[in-house]
Design a protein around this nucleic acid. Structure first.
Lengths: 176, 176
DNA sequence: ACCGACATGTAAGCTGTTACATGATTCC
DNA sequence: GGAATCATGTAACAGCTTACATGTCGGT
């Protein structure tokens, strides 16, 4: 899954401008890319050079000059191929685990404070997930996939919050 | 959590050579860094420049020339500070979710094949986790932390495998 | 008139990866 | 003698981030 793959995927359902792609990257928890201009514009340029996307300029419309990109035949074929390509393993980056594991021993109040801060971080992240029916006019297939994907992420955050409670409980025994 | 933070943490309990650090990075699921030389040697050099670690060369011993690094007073203080610093939110990179969500519609056999491949990837990753008591001579505090951290990761993989089964079930209804 | 959102792009620098280069020791 | 592991380092490149630079449009 490269950023180019992600951009092709975004263009599958509707044409987008570079700015739209940037917003989608920033909003969606599905993408780990920062959504900064440089990266998106370079990836977009390369897709264009490979003939996978095409720009249609809309100068006549009200609003600033805007380039709307659409998939070409080649782009659709490439997306088809990528959709069926070998799936990447999930990558779980949990720096807090390393922080606990590699650090020196915390006192009970210090541990309490850290856990509470972490709970806040995780809870905050969970709130950024889109609610259930976030796209109305989709096929049953797409609706099912969307529900399952959101569910996957929601469960991850739920499990993390439950783990924090478990740490609180377990550490009580350690601190006497 | 930077790579420098991680290296300080690794040196808390025992002195290590650069090669040891590299192996630790490669083995442990706690670190998302690749463990390549360039990165570790640069980070190590900077820690040395900041006076947080010290090298003691062991040329007399049998074996190739080896630099063993230890934490200085400053290094210990920095680790103490980092251990209590604001925890980073977990970062969940699950490219497979994007692959499903952004791709075109899969037939049932295609979906089956992808899920089976993904299950293999996830299961493989789960096998790399260390078993329970992987460090014998530790304090009750350290033992508790280690158990909780491993448990966190194990649960993540377990939940992912359960989710895959759920996708299989749910998609049955979609495919009729 | 100003501010925030929309919109496109570039420059500089930092981080990370792959590959290269060298050499010692241990085991077969 | 050859291969695997231990051990340290460098070079070239790819990827990512922060900041800069420019301009439009709509609302207050």
């Amino acid at each position: 899954m490269t950023i180019q793959h992600a951009l092709l995927g975004l263009l599958r359902t509707q044409p987008l401008s570079g700015y739209d792609m940037k917003k989608a990257m920033l909003r969606s928890p599905l993408f780990h890319w920062s959504g900064n201009n440089n990266q998106i514009y370079r990836a977009r340029a390369e897709l264009e050079a490979r003939g996978l996307v095409e720009a249609r300029i809309h100068p006549g419309d009200a609003g600033p000059i805007k380039k709307l990109y659409t998939l070409t035949e080649g782009g659709l074929a490439e997306l088809h191929r990528l959709t069926r390509s070998f799936p990447d393993a999930p990558e779980l980056r949990k720096p807090f685990l390393a922080q606990l594991m590699l650090g020196d021993a915390l006192t009970q109040p210090e541990m309490e404070a850290l856990l509470e801060q972490y709970r806040g971080e995780v809870y905050g992240a969970s709130l950024l997930l889109p609610g259930d029916a976030f796209a109305p006019d989709v096929t049953p297939y797409e609706a099912a996939i969307q529900a399952l994907v959101i569910d996957n992420l929601r469960q991850c955050y739920q499990a993390e919050l439950a783990w924090i409670e478990r740490v609180r409980e377990e550490m009580k025994n350690v601190y006497l």
